[in-house]
């Protein structure tokens, strides 16, 4: 019984992670400019790979392996915003345009 419970939980984590990765890929293709594409890739993509790592830790059923999976999850969650922020700042400073749908550019007020 416990076996089936762990398997169902792991399967749910796997499918949720793969679904988040698919949503991120769809957003990467559908969104209009680089900043919104970055929003899709860095948030949904990170959660997708992080949930899959959690599924590995849960499936192993060992505390040390689960701790390593948690450490990897936190590592991804900590580094993805940093890299996305660096990329966005560099792109904005160099002069990449926002899409025509955007109404406000607050970073421009900050930089000037």
């Amino acid at each position: 019984m416990m076996d089936i419970l762990v398997a169902v939980l792991t399967a749910c984590l796997i499918l949720a992670g793969a679904g988040f990765a698919l949503v991120a890929a769809i957003g990467l293709n559908r969104l209009p400019d680089i900043y919104t594409r970055m929003h899709a890739a860095s948030k949904a993509g990170t959660v997708g790979s992080g949930l899959l790592l959690l599924a590995v830790g849960l499936h192993a059923g060992d505390l040390s392996i689960f701790a390593r999976a948690i450490a990897g999850f936190f590592f991804f969650v900590l580094t993805a915003p940093i890299s996305a922020h660096l990329l966005a700042m560099a792109a904005h400073k160099v002069g990449y345009r926002l899409s025509s749908h955007s109404t406000r550019d607050e970073l421009k007020d900050y930089e000037s």
């Binding site: 991120a24 890929a25 990467l28 594409r37 993509g45 997708g48 599924a55 590995v56 996305a84």
Partner: peptide, 15 residues
Amino acid sequence: VALDMLTGIVIGFIA
């Protein structure tokens, strides 16, 4: 950005 996302997807494959 897309290459960064590719890394994330490959991590999912490895998991």
